[in-house]
Amino acid sequence: MSDRTDPLDVVRAAQGRSGGASRPRTDWSASRGRLFLVLIAPSVLLLALLNAYPVAYAALQSVRNGTLITAGEFVGLANFAKVLQSPDFWHAVRFTAIFTISGVAGSWLIGMALALALQARIHFGGVFKVLLLLPWVVPIVVSSMAWNWLVATPDSPMPALARFLGFGTPLFLADPVLAAVTVCVFKIWCSFPFMMLMMSAALSAIDRSVYEASSLDGASARQQLFYITLPLTRRTTYISWILMTIFCINDFPTIYLLTAGGPIDATTSLIVLAYRLVFQNFQTGPGVAVALMMTAAMVVVSMVLFRQIRKSGATA
């Protein structure tokens, strides 16, 4: 070996060594990626089947005139036409809209107000928060039994109190209007803790220096609410609205355990109507058609609110 080595030869040798060493790494990365795909493929396939099969089977049932036992004959879109021509369907649509709007708006307003109140330091704040979570934590069966005890009969506490105050004896679950109002209030009562948690998390993420700077500039509490708090929490607000809309439209136990859809179908929502058609009247096709139209409505509402989320992110 010569004492004097050409520097170019040294560089070429180093490049050759580095190039040769990089190929195994590339091969290992590719093989590791293929191994990863092979390992997750069964789980992905299983999840796809678990989600796709029920939807495909429901779509198949919606175009047949079968029952829970027999598949029935193919009738095309006749079940959808039958449902859309039914007054019961449009009555259920109306109540579902009222139930959903009141549930989302009422629970958000109360949850936001309580979240703002909990931002202040109060004595026994932890205990107070736990108590506020009880309507959401307690099983719906227990809550519905408690509300039935409160309002179901003329001798229940709420009708007795109304009679004592001179308002007569209101039949909260026998009068169609009062039953609808009672169900909506019950839904708000069960749902506001969820909204309170969502908005509390959003409020805790706001930098307090923003409020301090606005106070120095002379902003009032109302101005801080409308120009700081609401704009900075709107992403969480839209997400909570999406979730609560889905919860309300799909909420079967809250209505059924309290009123079973009565009186005279005053509190029959779309999910209750679908249940009756499938499991009581054994009309699988129309019942599944109602469920599919509910799903389409939820997808549309979710897309609209997701668009608002993207807009709020773009303008943030």
Rank of each mutant, 00 (worst) to 15 (best):
A179F: 06
M1E: 05
W28I: 15
K82M: 08
Y275D: 07
G166C: 12
I309D: 01
A201G: 14
L225S: 07
F192I: 05
I264A: 07
T67W: 11
V10C: 05
V104H: 01
F279T: 00
L150S: 03
L173D: 04
F164M: 14
A174G: 10
T267R: 00
L84D: 01
F80N: 02
P157I: 06
T26K: 09
L37D: 12
V93W: 00
L270K: 00
L173S: 02
P139I: 09
N148F: 13
F279N: 05
W149Q: 09
A56L: 12
S102I: 11
S240R: 04
R222H: 11
A58R: 05
L178R: 10
T67S: 12
L35Y: 13
H123I: 14
L68S: 11
P170T: 11
P159A: 13
F128G: 07
I246V: 14
L60Q: 15
R25F: 15
I206S: 00
Y256G: 08
R235D: 10
Q15N: 11
A71G: 10
S214C: 13
P176I: 07
G33E: 13
L77W: 12
A56V: 10
A297N: 03
L118F: 13
G103W: 02
I140A: 03
I228C: 01
A201T: 15
L230P: 00
I255W: 02
N51W: 02
R64T: 15
A205V: 02
S29I: 14
A13T: 14
S31C: 09
R4H: 08
L258N: 01
I246C: 02
I264W: 11
R235K: 10
V83M: 02
N281R: 13
G168V: 12
L45P: 06
S18I: 15
